[in-house]
């Protein structure tokens, strides 16, 4: 290992890769949340229970598809670049958020809901003032799972020209430059762990003390 290579990887290559990677993660997760949470709310309403089961099963199947296969399938359909990668990753990060949104909302005890409606709250108000706040920690936990996943699969997105830390790793592998590998892989790992810890911290902060951690 040479310091020269290491320095180059860390200071010349990494900033751009890290920026691209962050962009992929943030955009993907934002889109995933915007789609999944409303979808989860919709599917948790009693009227759509049956529909919810079907949707969950489909998402479950999608989730079983390995990330590398998703990336590979995205290329011929969506083309090269960052946008196709984001769309592909987003599809796969829906499941944990949708699933947790439904679980969180259904997990609110019916006593609480009944009490709220007994006080004269409408279904809408109950959703906004009672169910969602109580479900937020669980929804966040789903977002955490999805985020870690997107950081991880984001490294493969470089295969279809999306850039990101994957570029450093792939470059390192093909040229066999361990310095590139360490910088790319290390930053990827740190990013995933950091986001995981951060969202986990949020979860803990937001959980009412009586409900306990996790």
């Amino acid at each position: 290992m040479k310091w020269e290579n290491f320095r180059f990887a860390l200071f010349e290559k990494a900033p751009e890769a890290l920026w691209e990677h962050s962009l992929i993660v943030v955009i993907t997760i934002t889109l995933a949340i915007l789609i999944s949470v409303p979808l989860g709310i919709f599917l948790s309403r009693p009227k759509f229970k049956k529909f919810g089961l079907v949707t969950l099963n489909i998402l479950n199947l999608l989730q079983a598809v390995p990330g590398i296969a998703v990336i590979a399938l995205a290329l011929p359909i969506l083309g090269l670049g960052m946008e196709p990668a984001i769309v592909a990753l987003m599809f796969q990060s829906l499941l944990p958020i949708v699933r947790n949104t439904i679980a969180g909302l259904l997990g609110v005890s019916s006593d609480v809901k009944e009490a709220a409606s007994g006080m004269g709250m409408s279904q809408r108000r109950i959703l906004i003032e009672v169910e969602l706040p109580l479900a937020v920690p669980i929804i966040l936990s789903g977002i955490r799972t999805a985020t870690v996943y997107v950081v991880s699969m984001g490294t493969l997105a470089s295969l279809i020209g999306a850039g990101g830390l994957g570029n450093l790793i792939m470059g390192g592998l093909s040229l066999f430059r361990p310095e590139y590998l360490l910088v790319g892989a290390g930053l990827g790992a740190l990013m995933a762990i950091f986001l995981d810890r951060m969202i986990n911290y949020l979860e803990q902060r937001i959980t009412p003390p009586s409900m306990g951690a996790e």
């Binding site: 870690v148 950081v151 995933a192």
Partner: peptide, 18 residues
């Protein structure tokens, strides 16, 4: 275990290779 699980798979392979 949780922390290890967070590490992107490509990163993990890459680190082990070095």
């Amino acid at each position: 275990a949780n922390t290890i699980f967070c590490i992107p798979s490509l990163s993990m392979f890459a680190i082990l290779v070095t």
